[in-house]
Design a protein around this nucleic acid. Structure first.
Lengths: 179, 179
DNA sequence: TATTGTTATACTCTATAACTATA
DNA sequence: TATAGTTATAGAGTATAACAATA
């Protein structure tokens, strides 16, 4: 994907800019959360699928894929693994036999609940440095920023930054790999 | 990598847990920052290398790679591209000719400065929803959390969560792909 | 022999496009 | 014909290991 999240320890170089701070905290969370989530087939996405199956109602594979931002072909593999692990089942929609509903098994429900609880533990661990009030504060601030982010998600404007860039001089291209 | 950051829009399913909020905000930042950074060969990591070369002093490839958490073989490809684009140069260390120092060119310095400025614009854009005071507040909170995260980075403990898990019942393995 | 950097190879993940079945 | 799901193929990215030069 080639994004900043790929780089763990850059403290000395990059200072306190938002990208670094967000990346550091996010990675910290992901690193710890993975200890919990790697147990699940498909990792984080596997968990998200199970969670959606548990909390959503009889979603089709397509619906799931769109909601989670996962490609439908990937969803197939993911569900193969989850089904093989006995965490979800696929059942043809009687109304339209092209659709296949994804339903959690009892085992899937249990795993989902257990994982949610453990992830709350991970949160507490990551935010340990902050008081309860400060944790709420952080959540509130992130929530507001995220709200705007999700609203703008459809890639619509991507900010004024774009128009600034349009006026920029051309830059060297994007990594052509030699033979 | 198989981490949560791979999933863009899961608002309906995952609620307001930290992972979701962090992921949403981080992705928002990365998405916008990429508009700026994708111009640079090697993307975000290319920028980090240039930045390190500009602000650090005569780092060897190995030093760079370790500091940025990049594999040394990847660093070779990265520098090939950056050097081809005329942004950095490699020069053998007179003291130990096995080492090669990475130095920025004037062009690299210019690009670094310009990119830093644009990234500040991206920050402002992402945090637009918050007042200046709130932005400082958010930065402060993230900084404290990140401080702990980076300190604990060497994978030493990874929190008590681990020990909790050690006592857990075994889970299905990790995605064996069928033929 | 150990270390820095490079090159070659294999593997994982993802994206694309065909293919099947239902409508 | 269009859609949901599956399967197959190709590409990008990463990791691993062998290699060359220097110490």
């Amino acid at each position: 994907m080639d994004s900043p999240e790929a780089c763990p320890t850059d403290r000395a170089v990059l200072g306190d800019d938002l990208g670094f701070l967000l990346g550091a905290v996010f990675r910290s969370y992901v690193r710890t959360a993975n200890i919990v989530i790697d147990q699940i087939p498909g990792g984080a996405r596997g968990y998200q699928v199970i969670s959606a199956a548990v909390h959503g109602v009889a979603l089709s594979q397509r619906g799931l894929a769109e909601q989670l931002g996962i490609d439908r072909t990937v969803m197939t593999y993911l569900l193969d693994d989850l089904e093989a692990a006995g965490l979800v089942t696929r059942r043809a929609d009687p109304a339209d036999r092209r659709n296949r509903h994804v339903l959690p098994t009892d085992k899937g429900r249990e795993l989902c609940a257990a994982t949610e609880q453990r992830l709350r533990g991970v949160e507490a661990c990551v935010l340990e440095e902050l008081s309860a009030a400060e944790q709420d504060q952080l959540r509130g601030l992130l929530h507001r920023v995220a709200g705007r982010a999700v609203a703008a998600d459809p890639m619509g404007d991507a900010c004024r930054v774009l128009s600034d860039l349009a006026a920029e001089p051309p830059r060297p291209g994007r990594r052509p790999r030699r033979s």
